[in-house]
């Protein structure tokens, strides 16, 4: 067996194996990240849904009727007459 040549082939083999392992690991990494992306998209979807619900709730709470009713009944507020108004 010719020594130098054999060692060279051996070194090549090691490099090939190392890069092969990296290829395998990286392609799995791609899949893992893809799954992460999917999860993030699901979260986004859920947050959008949550946002739409909160939007509705706020709009119900802050409805003009509601604010006016609370102002007049609970806070005893009233519109001033024209005479009472102060001109700046």
């Amino acid at each position: 067996m010719k020594g130098a040549q054999s060692w060279f082939i051996l070194a090549l083999l090691v490099v090939v194996v190392a890069s092969g392992v990296q290829v395998a690991l990286k392609s799995h990494e791609v899949r893992r990240l893809h799954a992460e992306l999917q999860a993030a998209q699901r979260t986004q979807d859920e947050l959008l849904a949550e946002y739409s619900r909160l939007l509705l709730e706020r709009s119900t709470q802050a409805a003009f009727h509601n604010v006016e009713r609370i102002a007049e009944t609970e806070l005893s507020m009233q519109f001033p007459d024209a005479v009472e108004r102060l001109e700046p």
Binding site: A49, R53, L55, L56, A62
Partner: peptide, 21 residues
């Protein structure tokens, strides 16, 4: 792939039509 209808707002950003799941 979920996607829903746009929100309709009034001029001050009050929602007038909202799609919710």
């Amino acid at each position: 792939m979920p996607a829903f209808r746009g929100v309709i707002y009034d001029r001050h950003g009050e929602p007038l039509a909202v799609s919710t799941p």
